[in-house]
Structures are given as C-alpha cells and as structure tokens.
C-alpha cells in the first residue's frame, strides 16, 4: 500500500535530481559510495514547520549492500527538480 504523502518521480525529475547529485559530488554519508538510487519525493513544506513551503525530501538508497546506513535523502526546493 503506497503512502499517500510520498510522490513518485518521473524520468525528467529523476534526471534533474541525478544532475544535482553529480554537481554537488554527493556521496553516501555512511560508506562513501557514489552509487545512490533515487527514490520518491516527500513534500515537507506543509507538515514540517521548520521547512520552506516548497521543500521536498528526495529518497536516496545507497546501492552498496554492505553499507551500514543505506537509506538517506537530499532536500530540494520544488523549482530544483519538479517540472514547470
């Protein structure tokens, strides 16, 4: 059963997230792995009071099976990855 707050990303959206990861040289914080699988997006702006109203968390999963903390994420604003 899918969690209604979580939004699946389309191909172009994933591409923008991937480009962002590359430009920032993002690696897994736990194991340093560079292979991060892009997952879904969670809208943070409404529910979390500290977040800007257009903030999202994009789920990232470290592809390294021996990584001690495979689940991570990156915070992006709507304009940084959503289609216009």
């Amino acid at each position: 059963m899918a969690r209604p707050e979580v939004m699946p990303l389309g191909g172009s959206q994933r591409e923008r997230v991937r480009a962002r990861l590359r430009s920032e040289h993002t690696v897994c914080r736990a194991c340093g792995g560079v292979d991060l699988v892009i997952g879904d997006a969670l809208f943070l702006g409404f529910v979390f009071h500290s977040e800007p109203t257009d903030a999202y968390m994009i789920g990232l999963t470290c592809a390294n099976p021996s990584c001690p903390a495979r689940y991570t994420g990156i915070r992006l604003r709507a304009r940084e990855f959503l289609d216009r």
């Binding site: 979580v6 997952g39 500290s50 789920g59 689940y71 994420g73 915070r75």
Partner: peptide, 19 residues
Amino acid sequence: GKPPDSDTYKIMAVHDFAP
C-alpha cells in the same frame, strides 16, 4: 501535536519507514 521535525524522521518517511 506536530510531527518530528528531524532529518532522520523525514528520511525514514520518504522511504516509507523502511529504516
């Protein structure tokens, strides 16, 4: 009551609480 406003929680949520 408002939900936990921590990165740990948000990362868990975006992964459907798998962690």
